[in-house]
């Protein structure tokens, strides 16, 4: 799963005067495509931008377990259930790799969790849509994880070493997510009329939110230029979105399903698909927390954190007693 950096950044260009020399070394390293590691000097704004982006990415993985967990007990077969369970475990693992990467920047996982629960941190808008039918499990794997892969592959070369290494692991695992989703859609699309309708309905509902996953258009994405210069981000939002449309349309055609966009057509001169206008008002509303199930998602996270607090406390108390006994 994936999220783009959604918060305004006003502190990007502030570099203290005495850091000019170290900043020059840093900029040269990044421009030369070298990795920055945790103990290396880095500008505060780079650190803050990374913490924001990596933690949003981690939160997305964790919140992303909720829409799929919704169908775990109602999977249509044991095979599908085992697959879905494995995928959800992967999302959890991805969240943990990313929290670890962010922690190397000097923030604790608990601080990040608190920021999410207090509404100070964002996660991908895609998870604020409900999963209404079983076909949504297929559509999420195919489209949402498909979009995530396109976003994440270039991040394997992102300039911050721990983030890049986490992305290598995540990308290796993500491909299974997309393929199982497509296979699940294929079964439905080739099934009964009712199953085919269910698959089409899922595509209809997930198509536009998936396109929004790539973030605002390039001309409305003011921080992109700095993030690209720092090699935190490697491709523009619109370029990745176009790539997603171009690879996904033939996959939908192979399923015999219709992309819900009347303006979608092949453009011979651009050698790419033209697609219709995205409803950015909806996107910004979901970013503001007005998504259909935004409150439910956050409430579920807070509940999981709070109702399991006694387990963490008990584990720590047990260890305190154990080490005391050992010392005695």
């Amino acid at each position: 799963m994936y999220t783009v950096s959604l918060s305004p950044e006003t502190d990007l260009h502030i570099v203290a005067a005495d850091d000019t020399q170290r900043n020059a070394v840093f900029e040269a390293k990044v421009a030369d495509d070298q990795f920055i590691e945790p103990k290396d000097w880095m500008p505060d704004a780079y650190r803050k931008t990374l913490i924001r982006q990596i933690s949003q990415h981690a939160h997305s993985e964790i919140v992303g377990m909720l829409p799929e967990g919704n169908w775990l007990t109602r999977a249509p077969s044991l095979r599908r259930k085992a697959i879905l369970l494995a995928k959800i475990q992967d999302e959890c693992g991805h969240g943990l790799y990313l929290y670890s990467a962010a922690e190397t920047l000097g923030i604790s996982r608990d601080d990040m969790t608190e920021a999410l629960h207090q509404g100070r941190a964002k996660y991908s808008t895609i998870f604020n849509y409900p999963t209404l039918t079983w076909a949504d499990m297929g559509a999420i794997g195919w489209l949402v994880d498909g979009a995530a892969i396109l976003n994440q592959v270039p991040l394997q070369r992102t300039s911050y070493g721990p983030y890049a290494r986490a992305m290598v692991r995540i990308c290796k695992e993500e491909s299974f997510h997309q393929r199982q989703g497509y296979e699940s859609m294929m079964v439905l699309a080739q099934g009964t009329e009712g199953q085919r309708r269910m698959a089409q309905d899922a595509l209809n509902r997930w198509w536009w939110p998936s396109l929004m996953m790539f973030g605002p258009p390039d001309d409305q994405s003011p921080n992109s230029a700095q993030s690209m210069r720092w090699r935190i981000k490697r491709d523009s939002n619109d370029a990745l979105r176009q790539k997603f449309v171009d690879v996904t349309v033939p996959q939908a055609q192979a399923l015999g399903l219709t992309i819900p966009d009347p303006d979608l057509k092949w453009n011979e001169t651009r050698n790419a698909y033209d697609y219709g206008a995205i409803d950015w008002a909806e996107f910004h509303a979901v970013v503001r927390g007005e998504g259909p199930v935004a409150k439910e998602r956050l409430a579920a996270r807070i509940d999981a954190w709070e109702s399991n607090a006694w387990v963490r406390d008990a584990a720590l108390a047990h260890e305190a007693k154990r080490s005391q006994r050992k010392a005695a």
Partner: peptide, 11 residues
């Protein structure tokens, strides 16, 4: 390969 949070060695 990375890190984890845990209360004790076994966890």
């Amino acid at each position: 390969v990375g890190s984890v949070h845990a209360a004790d060695p076994r966890m």
